[in-house]
Design a binder for these strands. Sequence first.
DNA 1: CAGTATGCGGAGGAATACATTCCGGTTCTA
DNA 2: TAGAACCGGAATGTATTCCTCCGCATACTG
Lengths: 216, 216
Amino acid sequence: MTADPETTLRADARRNRDQILAAAKTIFAVSGPEVPMEEIARAAGVGVGTLYRRFPDRDALVRAVAMDNFERVLIDAKVIAAEETSAWSALSRLLRQSVELQLSVQLAMVSPRALVILKNDPEVRRLRDEILVVLDEFVAGAKAEGKLRLDVGSGDIAILFATLLRQVRAKSPDVAELAARRCVGIMIDGLSARPGTELPGRPITSHDLDPMTEHS
Amino acid sequence: MTADPETTLRADARRNRDQILAAAKTIFAVSGPEVPMEEIARAAGVGVGTLYRRFPDRDALVRAVAMDNFERVLIDAKVIAAEETSAWSALSRLLRQSVELQLSVQLAMVSPRALVILKNDPEVRRLRDEILVVLDEFVAGAKAEGKLRLDVGSGDIAILFATLLRQVRAKSPDVAELAARRCVGIMIDGLSARPGTELPGRPITSHDLDPMTEHS
DNA sequence: CAGTATGCGGAGGAATACATTCCGGTTCTA
DNA sequence: TAGAACCGGAATGTATTCCTCCGCATACTG
Protein backbone atom coordinates (compact mmCIF):
# COMPACT_ATOMS: atom_id res chain seq x y z
CA MET A 1 0.00 0.00 0.00
CA THR A 2 1.89 2.96 1.28
CA ALA A 3 5.41 2.79 0.01
CA ASP A 4 7.83 2.03 2.78
CA PRO A 5 10.03 5.08 3.35
CA GLU A 6 12.78 2.82 4.56
CA THR A 7 13.35 1.30 1.16
CA THR A 8 11.82 3.66 -1.37
CA LEU A 9 13.83 6.74 -0.58
CA ARG A 10 16.97 7.80 -2.32
CA ALA A 11 20.06 7.21 -0.21
CA ASP A 12 20.66 10.80 0.84
CA ALA A 13 17.00 11.39 1.48
CA ARG A 14 16.89 8.38 3.69
CA ARG A 15 19.89 9.62 5.62
CA ASN A 16 18.30 13.02 6.12
CA ARG A 17 15.10 11.45 7.27
CA ASP A 18 16.93 9.55 9.96
CA GLN A 19 18.80 12.62 11.08
CA ILE A 20 15.58 14.55 11.37
CA LEU A 21 14.01 11.84 13.46
CA ALA A 22 17.01 11.66 15.74
CA ALA A 23 17.20 15.40 16.16
CA ALA A 24 13.50 15.67 16.83
CA LYS A 25 13.71 12.97 19.44
CA THR A 26 16.43 14.77 21.33
CA ILE A 27 14.80 18.14 21.11
CA PHE A 28 11.33 16.90 21.97
CA ALA A 29 12.76 15.20 25.00
CA VAL A 30 14.27 18.39 26.30
CA SER A 31 11.82 21.03 25.21
CA GLY A 32 8.61 19.26 24.37
CA PRO A 33 6.97 18.76 20.99
CA GLU A 34 6.17 22.40 20.37
CA VAL A 35 9.55 23.71 19.44
CA PRO A 36 9.79 25.60 16.14
CA MET A 37 10.22 23.34 13.18
CA GLU A 38 13.18 25.38 12.09
CA GLU A 39 15.05 24.50 15.24
CA ILE A 40 14.60 20.84 14.54
CA ALA A 41 15.73 21.28 10.97
CA ARG A 42 18.85 23.12 12.09
CA ALA A 43 19.68 20.47 14.65
CA ALA A 44 19.29 17.85 11.97
CA GLY A 45 21.52 19.76 9.60
CA VAL A 46 18.88 20.16 6.92
CA GLY A 47 16.67 22.93 5.61
CA VAL A 48 13.08 23.39 6.68
CA GLY A 49 12.02 22.48 3.20
CA THR A 50 13.47 19.05 3.61
CA LEU A 51 11.81 18.59 6.93
CA TYR A 52 8.42 19.46 5.49
CA ARG A 53 8.93 17.31 2.44
CA ARG A 54 9.47 14.29 4.62
CA PHE A 55 6.86 15.11 7.26
CA PRO A 56 3.94 17.11 5.86
CA ASP A 57 3.30 18.88 9.14
CA ARG A 58 4.21 18.85 12.80
CA ASP A 59 1.69 16.19 13.63
CA ALA A 60 3.26 13.77 11.22
CA LEU A 61 6.64 14.36 12.80
CA VAL A 62 5.36 13.89 16.30
CA ARG A 63 3.64 10.72 15.29
CA ALA A 64 6.77 9.39 13.64
CA VAL A 65 8.91 10.18 16.66
CA ALA A 66 6.43 8.54 18.97
CA MET A 67 6.22 5.43 16.87
CA ASP A 68 9.96 5.17 16.65
CA ASN A 69 10.40 5.45 20.38
CA PHE A 70 7.54 3.26 21.38
CA GLU A 71 8.96 0.57 19.20
CA ARG A 72 12.40 0.98 20.66
CA VAL A 73 11.17 0.76 24.21
CA LEU A 74 9.11 -2.28 23.46
CA ILE A 75 12.07 -4.04 21.91
CA ASP A 76 14.22 -3.11 24.88
CA ALA A 77 11.65 -4.40 27.27
CA LYS A 78 11.42 -7.69 25.49
CA VAL A 79 15.18 -8.12 25.38
CA ILE A 80 15.37 -7.36 29.06
CA ALA A 81 12.54 -9.73 29.85
CA ALA A 82 14.42 -12.47 28.07
CA GLU A 83 17.77 -11.75 29.67
CA GLU A 84 16.93 -10.97 33.26
CA THR A 85 15.99 -13.73 35.62
CA SER A 86 13.87 -11.79 38.07
CA ALA A 87 11.06 -9.39 37.40
CA TRP A 88 12.49 -6.85 39.82
CA SER A 89 15.84 -6.73 38.10
CA ALA A 90 14.07 -6.51 34.78
CA LEU A 91 11.99 -3.62 35.99
CA SER A 92 14.83 -1.70 37.51
CA ARG A 93 17.04 -2.29 34.52
CA LEU A 94 14.34 -1.12 32.18
CA LEU A 95 13.83 2.02 34.17
CA ARG A 96 17.51 2.66 34.55
CA GLN A 97 18.57 2.20 30.98
CA SER A 98 15.59 3.84 29.45
CA VAL A 99 16.54 7.29 30.59
CA GLU A 100 17.04 8.18 26.96
CA LEU A 101 14.27 6.20 25.42
CA GLN A 102 11.65 6.74 28.02
CA LEU A 103 12.64 10.34 27.82
CA SER A 104 10.78 10.80 24.60
CA VAL A 105 8.21 8.16 25.19
CA GLN A 106 6.89 9.43 28.45
CA LEU A 107 7.06 12.91 27.22
CA ALA A 108 4.74 11.90 24.49
CA MET A 109 2.33 10.77 27.17
CA VAL A 110 2.50 13.97 29.15
CA SER A 111 2.43 16.73 26.59
CA PRO A 112 -1.12 17.81 25.78
CA ARG A 113 -0.12 18.55 22.24
CA ALA A 114 1.24 15.12 21.58
CA LEU A 115 -1.76 13.60 23.27
CA VAL A 116 -4.19 15.04 20.83
CA ILE A 117 -2.10 13.83 17.97
CA LEU A 118 -1.63 10.31 19.23
CA LYS A 119 -4.96 9.65 20.84
CA ASN A 120 -6.70 8.52 17.72
CA ASP A 121 -3.88 6.74 16.01
CA PRO A 122 -4.62 3.03 16.22
CA GLU A 123 -1.09 1.97 15.41
CA VAL A 124 0.30 4.07 18.21
CA ARG A 125 -2.26 2.75 20.62
CA ARG A 126 -1.43 -0.81 19.79
CA LEU A 127 2.24 -0.27 20.57
CA ARG A 128 1.44 1.65 23.69
CA ASP A 129 -0.83 -1.08 24.95
CA GLU A 130 1.82 -3.68 24.36
CA ILE A 131 4.26 -1.67 26.41
CA LEU A 132 1.78 -1.31 29.22
CA VAL A 133 1.22 -5.03 29.28
CA VAL A 134 4.91 -5.74 29.61
CA LEU A 135 5.28 -3.09 32.29
CA ASP A 136 2.37 -4.50 34.25
CA GLU A 137 3.93 -7.93 34.06
CA PHE A 138 7.17 -6.62 35.43
CA VAL A 139 5.36 -4.85 38.23
CA ALA A 140 3.24 -7.84 39.17
CA GLY A 141 6.23 -10.14 39.00
CA ALA A 142 8.41 -7.91 41.12
CA LYS A 143 5.71 -7.67 43.74
CA ALA A 144 5.33 -11.44 43.79
CA GLU A 145 9.07 -11.71 44.34
CA GLY A 146 8.75 -9.42 47.32
CA LYS A 147 11.15 -6.95 45.80
CA LEU A 148 8.74 -4.19 44.84
CA ARG A 149 6.65 -2.45 47.45
CA LEU A 150 3.09 -3.58 47.28
CA ASP A 151 1.51 -0.21 47.60
CA VAL A 152 2.53 1.10 44.19
CA GLY A 153 0.92 0.56 40.83
CA SER A 154 2.41 0.84 37.40
CA GLY A 155 0.77 4.26 37.19
CA ASP A 156 2.83 5.46 40.10
CA ILE A 157 5.95 4.29 38.37
CA ALA A 158 4.98 5.86 35.10
CA ILE A 159 4.36 9.20 36.74
CA LEU A 160 7.54 9.01 38.71
CA PHE A 161 9.59 8.56 35.60
CA ALA A 162 7.57 10.75 33.36
CA THR A 163 8.07 13.74 35.57
CA LEU A 164 11.69 13.00 36.00
CA LEU A 165 12.61 13.12 32.41
CA ARG A 166 12.54 16.78 31.70
CA GLN A 167 16.23 17.34 31.73
CA VAL A 168 17.41 19.50 34.55
CA ARG A 169 19.34 22.58 33.63
CA ALA A 170 22.48 22.16 35.69
CA LYS A 171 25.70 23.99 35.22
CA SER A 172 26.92 21.58 32.62
CA PRO A 173 25.36 18.84 30.56
CA ASP A 174 27.59 16.36 32.37
CA VAL A 175 26.20 17.29 35.74
CA ALA A 176 22.68 17.18 34.36
CA GLU A 177 23.20 13.73 32.96
CA LEU A 178 24.72 12.46 36.18
CA ALA A 179 21.93 14.02 38.17
CA ALA A 180 19.36 12.21 36.08
CA ARG A 181 21.02 8.86 36.65
CA ARG A 182 21.23 9.51 40.36
CA CYS A 183 17.58 10.48 40.57
CA VAL A 184 16.61 7.27 38.90
CA GLY A 185 18.70 5.37 41.39
CA ILE A 186 17.09 7.09 44.32
CA MET A 187 13.64 6.46 42.96
CA ILE A 188 14.34 2.81 42.39
CA ASP A 189 15.41 2.53 45.99
CA GLY A 190 12.23 4.30 46.97
CA LEU A 191 10.27 1.71 45.05
CA SER A 192 11.96 -1.31 46.53
CA ALA A 193 10.12 -3.24 49.20
CA ARG A 194 11.64 -2.24 52.48
CA PRO A 195 9.86 -0.87 55.51
CA GLY A 196 9.36 2.76 54.63
CA THR A 197 6.76 5.44 54.93
CA GLU A 198 3.23 4.54 54.03
CA LEU A 199 1.94 6.17 50.88
CA PRO A 200 -1.31 8.10 50.89
CA GLY A 201 -4.29 6.92 48.87
CA ARG A 202 -4.27 3.76 46.81
CA PRO A 203 -1.88 2.57 44.15
CA ILE A 204 -2.25 4.43 40.91
CA THR A 205 -2.74 2.12 37.99
CA SER A 206 -1.83 2.75 34.43
CA HIS A 207 -5.50 3.13 33.74
CA ASP A 208 -5.83 6.00 36.19
CA LEU A 209 -3.85 8.27 34.03
CA ASP A 210 -4.39 6.69 30.69
CA PRO A 211 -4.21 9.76 28.50
CA MET A 212 -5.67 7.88 25.59
CA THR A 213 -9.13 7.72 27.05
CA GLU A 214 -11.39 10.60 27.85
CA HIS A 215 -11.47 12.11 31.31
CA SER A 216 -13.67 9.76 33.36
CA MET B 1 11.46 55.15 50.01
CA THR B 2 9.25 52.96 47.89
CA ALA B 3 5.75 53.08 49.26
CA ASP B 4 4.75 49.74 50.68
CA PRO B 5 2.01 48.27 48.48
CA GLU B 6 0.70 46.38 51.47
CA THR B 7 -0.48 49.50 53.23
CA THR B 8 -0.71 52.22 50.61
CA LEU B 9 -3.20 50.57 48.29
CA ARG B 10 -6.90 51.08 48.33
CA ALA B 11 -8.79 48.12 49.74
CA ASP B 12 -10.05 46.69 46.46
CA ALA B 13 -6.76 47.28 44.74
CA ARG B 14 -5.00 45.46 47.49
CA ARG B 15 -7.37 42.55 47.17
CA ASN B 16 -6.81 42.35 43.44
CA ARG B 17 -3.09 42.45 43.90
CA ASP B 18 -3.25 39.46 46.20
CA GLN B 19 -5.45 37.54 43.82
CA ILE B 20 -3.06 38.20 40.99
CA LEU B 21 -0.14 36.98 43.01
CA ALA B 22 -1.99 33.85 44.04
CA ALA B 23 -3.13 33.09 40.52
CA ALA B 24 0.31 33.69 39.11
CA LYS B 25 1.82 31.36 41.66
CA THR B 26 -0.51 28.55 40.73
CA ILE B 27 -0.14 29.04 37.03
CA PHE B 28 3.61 29.47 37.10
CA ALA B 29 3.87 26.27 39.05
CA VAL B 30 2.00 24.32 36.44
CA SER B 31 3.03 25.96 33.23
CA GLY B 32 6.14 27.96 33.95
CA PRO B 33 6.62 31.70 34.03
CA GLU B 34 6.04 32.29 30.35
CA VAL B 35 2.31 31.92 30.17
CA PRO B 36 0.40 34.78 28.52
CA MET B 37 -0.31 37.63 30.90
CA GLU B 38 -3.93 37.48 29.93
CA GLU B 39 -4.26 33.98 31.25
CA ILE B 40 -2.99 35.07 34.61
CA ALA B 41 -5.36 38.00 34.65
CA ARG B 42 -8.28 35.78 33.82
CA ALA B 43 -7.37 33.28 36.52
CA ALA B 44 -7.14 36.14 38.99
CA GLY B 45 -10.51 37.45 37.91
CA VAL B 46 -9.22 40.83 36.81
CA GLY B 47 -8.53 42.55 33.52
CA VAL B 48 -5.10 42.74 31.96
CA GLY B 49 -5.09 46.44 32.62
CA THR B 50 -5.21 45.83 36.32
CA LEU B 51 -2.44 43.32 36.12
CA TYR B 52 -0.19 45.78 34.32
CA ARG B 53 -1.06 48.61 36.64
CA ARG B 54 0.14 46.59 39.59
CA PHE B 55 3.12 44.93 37.92
CA PRO B 56 4.66 47.07 35.18
CA ASP B 57 5.81 44.06 33.18
CA ARG B 58 6.26 40.35 33.38
CA ASP B 59 9.60 40.57 35.09
CA ALA B 60 8.10 42.49 37.96
CA LEU B 61 5.45 39.85 38.40
CA VAL B 62 7.91 37.01 38.32
CA ARG B 63 10.07 38.74 40.85
CA ALA B 64 7.12 39.35 43.14
CA VAL B 65 5.97 35.75 42.93
CA ALA B 66 9.46 34.50 43.63
CA MET B 67 9.89 36.76 46.62
CA ASP B 68 6.56 35.75 48.01
CA ASN B 69 7.31 32.07 47.78
CA PHE B 70 10.87 32.21 48.92
CA GLU B 71 9.69 33.97 52.01
CA ARG B 72 6.96 31.48 52.61
CA VAL B 73 9.29 28.52 52.28
CA LEU B 74 11.80 30.09 54.58
CA ILE B 75 9.20 30.72 57.23
CA ASP B 76 7.93 27.17 56.89
CA ALA B 77 11.42 25.80 57.21
CA LYS B 78 12.04 27.77 60.36
CA VAL B 79 8.79 26.71 61.92
CA ILE B 80 9.56 23.12 61.11
CA ALA B 81 13.06 23.40 62.47
CA ALA B 82 11.65 24.67 65.73
CA GLU B 83 8.95 22.04 66.00
CA GLU B 84 10.62 18.86 64.86
CA THR B 85 13.05 17.10 67.08
CA SER B 86 15.15 15.31 64.49
CA ALA B 87 16.71 16.69 61.37
CA TRP B 88 15.42 13.80 59.31
CA SER B 89 11.83 14.36 60.30
CA ALA B 90 12.29 18.05 59.69
CA LEU B 91 13.67 17.38 56.24
CA SER B 92 11.00 14.94 55.24
CA ARG B 93 8.25 17.11 56.61
CA LEU B 94 9.56 20.11 54.75
CA LEU B 95 9.69 18.19 51.52
CA ARG B 96 6.32 16.64 52.06
CA GLN B 97 4.38 19.72 52.94
CA SER B 98 6.07 22.03 50.55
CA VAL B 99 4.60 20.43 47.50
CA GLU B 100 2.76 23.65 46.86
CA LEU B 101 5.34 26.12 47.97
CA GLN B 102 8.36 24.41 46.61
CA LEU B 103 6.34 24.09 43.50
CA SER B 104 6.87 27.69 42.62
CA VAL B 105 10.15 28.07 44.32
CA GLN B 106 11.96 25.33 42.56
CA LEU B 107 10.37 26.28 39.34
CA ALA B 108 11.90 29.66 39.75
CA MET B 109 15.25 27.93 39.96
CA VAL B 110 14.75 25.82 36.90
CA SER B 111 13.13 28.05 34.35
CA PRO B 112 15.71 29.91 32.27
CA ARG B 113 13.40 32.87 31.99
CA ALA B 114 12.98 33.31 35.73
CA LEU B 115 16.68 32.78 36.19
CA VAL B 116 17.63 35.79 34.19
CA ILE B 117 15.19 37.88 36.10
CA LEU B 118 16.23 36.76 39.53
CA LYS B 119 19.92 36.33 39.08
CA ASN B 120 20.83 39.91 39.74
CA ASP B 121 18.28 40.74 42.35
CA PRO B 122 20.13 41.02 45.65
CA GLU B 123 17.01 40.69 47.76
CA VAL B 124 16.04 37.45 46.08
CA ARG B 125 19.54 36.12 46.46
CA ARG B 126 19.60 36.83 50.13
CA LEU B 127 16.41 34.87 50.72
CA ARG B 128 17.54 32.07 48.51
CA ASP B 129 20.83 31.77 50.34
CA GLU B 130 19.06 31.63 53.66
CA ILE B 131 16.92 28.78 52.40
CA LEU B 132 19.94 26.90 51.16
CA VAL B 133 21.61 27.24 54.52
CA VAL B 134 18.61 25.79 56.32
CA LEU B 135 18.33 22.98 53.81
CA ASP B 136 22.01 22.13 54.16
CA GLU B 137 21.61 22.01 57.91
CA PHE B 138 18.73 19.60 57.62
CA VAL B 139 20.70 17.42 55.25
CA ALA B 140 23.81 17.38 57.39
CA GLY B 141 21.80 16.72 60.52
CA ALA B 142 19.81 13.90 58.98
CA LYS B 143 23.01 12.26 57.80
CA ALA B 144 24.51 12.55 61.26
CA GLU B 145 21.43 10.87 62.65
CA GLY B 146 21.94 8.00 60.27
CA LYS B 147 18.56 8.54 58.71
CA LEU B 148 19.57 10.04 55.40
CA ARG B 149 21.71 8.10 53.01
CA LEU B 150 25.21 9.45 52.98
CA ASP B 151 25.71 9.42 49.26
CA VAL B 152 23.32 12.25 48.48
CA GLY B 153 23.87 15.99 48.63
CA SER B 154 21.36 18.76 48.97
CA GLY B 155 21.72 19.27 45.23
CA ASP B 156 20.42 15.78 44.60
CA ILE B 157 17.43 16.53 46.74
CA ALA B 158 16.81 19.84 45.08
CA ILE B 159 16.84 18.25 41.66
CA LEU B 160 14.64 15.42 42.74
CA PHE B 161 11.98 17.79 43.93
CA ALA B 162 12.45 20.40 41.31
CA THR B 163 11.76 17.93 38.54
CA LEU B 164 8.83 16.52 40.36
CA LEU B 165 6.86 19.68 40.59
CA ARG B 166 5.58 20.06 37.12
CA GLN B 167 2.13 18.83 37.82
CA VAL B 168 1.23 15.68 36.01
CA ARG B 169 -1.76 15.80 33.75
CA ALA B 170 -3.80 12.89 35.03
CA LYS B 171 -7.42 12.24 34.34
CA SER B 172 -8.55 14.48 37.12
CA PRO B 173 -6.93 17.09 39.33
CA ASP B 174 -7.60 14.83 42.29
CA VAL B 175 -5.60 12.01 40.85
CA ALA B 176 -2.85 14.40 39.91
CA GLU B 177 -2.67 15.76 43.40
CA LEU B 178 -2.63 12.32 44.94
CA ALA B 179 0.00 11.19 42.50
CA ALA B 180 2.22 14.07 43.49
CA ARG B 181 1.96 13.23 47.15
CA ARG B 182 2.72 9.61 46.47
CA CYS B 183 5.75 10.46 44.39
CA VAL B 184 7.09 12.55 47.22
CA GLY B 185 6.59 9.64 49.57
CA ILE B 186 8.45 7.27 47.30
CA MET B 187 11.29 9.68 46.88
CA ILE B 188 11.62 10.20 50.58
CA ASP B 189 11.88 6.48 51.04
CA GLY B 190 14.50 6.42 48.34
CA LEU B 191 16.45 9.01 50.26
CA SER B 192 16.34 7.26 53.58
CA ALA B 193 19.42 5.43 54.74
CA ARG B 194 18.78 1.76 54.13
CA PRO B 195 20.88 -0.63 52.14
CA GLY B 196 19.94 0.13 48.57
CA THR B 197 21.56 0.48 45.22
CA GLU B 198 24.72 2.47 45.00
CA LEU B 199 24.40 5.77 43.19
CA PRO B 200 26.72 6.68 40.34
CA GLY B 201 29.11 9.57 40.64
CA ARG B 202 29.44 11.72 43.72
CA PRO B 203 26.81 13.58 45.70
CA ILE B 204 25.55 16.67 43.96
CA THR B 205 25.77 19.72 46.14
CA SER B 206 23.62 22.78 45.97
CA HIS B 207 26.60 24.55 44.52
CA ASP B 208 26.81 22.17 41.59
CA LEU B 209 23.62 23.45 40.13
CA ASP B 210 23.52 26.89 41.61
CA PRO B 211 21.76 28.77 38.85
CA MET B 212 22.71 32.08 40.32
CA THR B 213 26.32 31.77 39.33
CA GLU B 214 27.72 31.52 35.85
CA HIS B 215 28.46 28.19 34.26
CA SER B 216 31.84 27.24 35.72
C1' DC C 1 29.54 9.73 -18.38
C1' DA C 2 25.42 12.06 -19.64
C1' DG C 3 20.55 12.56 -18.70
C1' DT C 4 16.99 12.89 -15.61
C1' DA C 5 14.30 12.14 -11.67
C1' DT C 6 14.63 13.00 -7.09
C1' DG C 7 15.90 15.80 -3.45
C1' DC C 8 17.78 20.22 -1.24
C1' DG C 9 17.95 24.86 1.11
C1' DG C 10 16.10 28.77 2.71
C1' DA C 11 13.73 33.30 1.42
C1' DG C 12 9.24 35.11 2.08
C1' DG C 13 3.92 35.53 2.44
C1' DA C 14 0.21 34.90 5.65
C1' DA C 15 -1.53 34.07 9.98
C1' DT C 16 -1.20 34.04 14.69
C1' DA C 17 -0.09 34.96 19.38
C1' DC C 18 1.52 38.26 22.84
C1' DA C 19 2.83 42.29 25.47
C1' DT C 20 1.44 46.51 26.49
C1' DT C 21 -1.27 50.91 26.24
C1' DC C 22 -5.34 53.71 26.65
C1' DC C 23 -9.60 55.51 28.04
C1' DG C 24 -14.65 55.64 29.12
C1' DG C 25 -16.93 53.94 32.97
C1' DT C 26 -17.05 52.27 37.96
C1' DT C 27 -16.00 51.95 42.88
C1' DC C 28 -14.07 53.36 47.08
C1' DT C 29 -13.22 56.86 50.73
C1' DA C 30 -13.62 60.99 53.32
C1' DT D 1 -21.67 63.24 47.24
C1' DA D 2 -17.25 64.85 45.20
C1' DG D 3 -13.27 63.41 43.49
C1' DA D 4 -9.47 60.51 43.50
C1' DA D 5 -8.16 55.88 42.65
C1' DC D 6 -9.13 51.98 40.14
C1' DC D 7 -11.18 48.76 36.70
C1' DG D 8 -11.97 46.01 32.27
C1' DG D 9 -10.92 44.84 27.99
C1' DA D 10 -10.76 46.57 23.07
C1' DA D 11 -7.13 48.09 20.13
C1' DT D 12 -2.31 48.47 18.46
C1' DG D 13 2.18 47.19 17.20
C1' DT D 14 5.50 43.66 17.10
C1' DA D 15 7.70 39.23 17.15
C1' DT D 16 7.15 34.30 16.01
C1' DT D 17 6.11 30.59 13.51
C1' DC D 18 4.12 27.74 9.94
C1' DC D 19 4.51 26.26 5.55
C1' DT D 20 5.03 26.98 0.34
C1' DC D 21 7.68 27.65 -3.63
C1' DC D 22 11.35 27.49 -6.88
C1' DG D 23 16.03 27.71 -8.73
C1' DC D 24 19.99 24.73 -7.88
C1' DA D 25 22.41 20.28 -6.53
C1' DT D 26 22.97 15.43 -6.13
C1' DA D 27 22.30 10.61 -6.65
C1' DC D 28 20.94 6.80 -9.65
C1' DT D 29 20.60 4.52 -14.53
C1' DG D 30 21.98 2.77 -18.84
